[in-house]
Design a protein around this nucleic acid. Sequence first.
DNA 1: ACTTACCGTAAGCTATGACTTACGAAGATT
DNA 2: AATCTTCGTAAGTCATAGCTTACGGTAAGT
Lengths: 108, 108
Amino acid sequence: MTYEDSPMQRSLSALSDPTRRAVFEAVAAQPRSVTELAKTQPISRPAVSQHLKVLSEANLVRAEAQGTRRIYHLDTAGLAALRDYLDQFWTDALGAYAAEVRRRTKPN
Amino acid sequence: MTYEDSPMQRSLSALSDPTRRAVFEAVAAQPRSVTELAKTQPISRPAVSQHLKVLSEANLVRAEAQGTRRIYHLDTAGLAALRDYLDQFWTDALGAYAAEVRRRTKPN
DNA sequence: ACTTACCGTAAGCTATGACTTACGAAGATT
DNA sequence: AATCTTCGTAAGTCATAGCTTACGGTAAGT
């Protein structure tokens, strides 16, 4: 049951697959065309295309047409969304920890 | 094909499922027992247990036994791993952007 | 000691997701 | 204009992930 489909959930699940994450890292390392990306992976070119579609919809990657080729490059939007999401828990955790410290140090 | 199983990949895929992410957020918001967590979700208690197992193996959550109850609370280790992973791309992206700016502003 | 509450795991079902091959469209090349 | 390259998508297959019910084990309550 997919009862939530926030943009950040998309980014999160986009990176959940190891192969897709490898594709993402290849794109991040250097902007490349689809066939070039496919050469770096042990899967077929259409499979890479499908992964790129998912990554695009997660705003983790973007394409620029250049003739018949499509050069994919990193998109920081999805990255920022993920970072903000994690940071939220991070500060919450710190806050909870501080509260715990206060609770433990406070005399009864 | 699971050709990679880094601890950070585990954290990443642990949060890929919306339901499991909801469980994680419930734990993060407040340490709770399994049955208490199950009440906050539209799934059965064993399902919550299974999600907690995955989250535990991803170092996103930890349990403390308290009688027969197991109180789950946030574990910042997995969170830190994710943060570091994303930050790596972040700084890379900034570096690439800076290089791009240099390339564009540099006279031919 | 018997029952009750709490929890993890096994077994089984079903939906989904990751891959393949096949195809068609659009721009480059000759 | 004919071919070749590049790419996205459709169709189909297969493995896996998430859920359920059922069960057993441990600690607490009476």
